[in-house]
Design a binder for these strands. Structure first.
Length: 301
DNA sequence: AGGCAGGTGGCCA
DNA sequence: TGGCCACCTGCC
């Protein structure tokens, strides 16, 4: 995997708790795991756990999912644009994050950019999450002048249910604070609800998620794709709306129709296809911003 | 410096 | 159903 693709995997909108380090490595937190990862000299992935173990790491990186097999099963042979996206990001992965944490992160995501979502989530963890014990040997290098960094887990839903909405707003959540507070209250009243939902088939799980305040189709699909390994979930956001309009000539299609198109056209691993398309469009967006390429035509709604 | 941002829910024809 | 708008507020 290239450093590019690693960055896109960790920081491309699936997860919001990875921070780039000065040495081109990344440090990420999920559950009570703290892990450093980078691309080695031979292009292999190197990781070390400051907290947590190998089982947690391999699970998180989707080792059980056979992503290469799923990628090959995508209809790239008959879809030139998809083929181009896959070729541009070889080895791009769908992470297998924790269900409850993914729900929390995507409840923060409504009409916010990745940087800001990361800020909200970081504040939630620092102010309301538990501090994670980190092995002493990994805490800063010997002779380093910088103090040891503290790492915090995200607050559990149980904990979130005890936090006043006002304090959630202080974590830059804005109107999302109400959704999170209400969802927390609801989950507190129904122990086991999350675990049951996670284990349901895609359609039923999505229906249940959509019953939570602040969770619509898009967020439900993100939670199922990134937090439950349901690769058929096909989140339709403004980027995908734009991509499908531009690259598949689907101007004026509404999200619900695009969602159907996605599943019909891309098949059982539509969510993986979505991630490739998304990565392509993001890279293009950055190039436009840098003036490397011309801006694409605007789309009609 | 001010518009905009990876949505959702509610209200209206 | 389909369209429109309020909801918060920190960043680029």
């Amino acid at each position: 995997m290239s450093t590019d693709v690693l960055a896109e995997t960790l920081d491309g909108g699936q997860a919001f708790r990875w921070t780039p380090q000065t040495d081109r490595s990344w440090i990420g937190i999920w559950g009570r795991n703290v892990v450093r990862i980078r691309v080695g000299p031979a292009g292999d992935i190197e990781w070390s756990a400051l907290a947590g173990d190998e089982a947690a790491v391999t699970h998180y990186f989707g080792a059980e999912a056979d992503l290469p097999g799923a990628t090959d099963a995508l209809p790239w042979r008959s879809d030139a644009h998809l083929a181009r996206c896959i070729q541009a990001f070889p080895g791009l992965r769908i992470l297998r994050q924790q269900f409850g944490e993914t729900l929390l992160c995507f409840l923060c995501s409504a009409t916010k950019q990745i940087v800001q979502i990361k800020q909200m989530v970081a504040l939630l963890a620092e102010r309301h999450g538990e501090r994670i014990a980190v092995a002493a040997a990994d805490r800063g290098r010997p002779g380093s002048a910088s103090p040891a960094t503290a790492y915090y887990a995200l607050p559990t839903w149980e904990k979130l249910a005890t936090i006043p909405e006002r304090e959630l707003r202080d974590c830059l959540l804005g109107f999302r604070a109400k959704y999170i507070a209400e969802t927390a209250t609801l989950l507190a009243r129904h122990p086991g609800w999350l675990a049951e939902t996670e284990n349901l088939p895609y359609t039923q799980a999505k229906e249940r998620l959509c019953s939570l305040p602040g969770v619509g189709e898009k967020i439900a699909d993100c939670v199922l794709l990134f937090g439950a390994g349901k690769l058929e979930a096909f989140p339709v956001d403004v980027w995908i709306l734009r991509t499908l309009a531009l690259r598949y000539d689907l101007h004026g299609w509404k999200p619900a129709a695009l969602s159907q198109f996605g599943r019909a056209h891309f098949g059982a691993y539509a969510g993986l296809a979505q991630q490739f398309l998304f990565a392509w469009e993001r890279r293009l967006g950055r190039s436009v911003a840098q003036g490397t390429v011309a801006a694409p035509p605007s789309i009609s709604r």
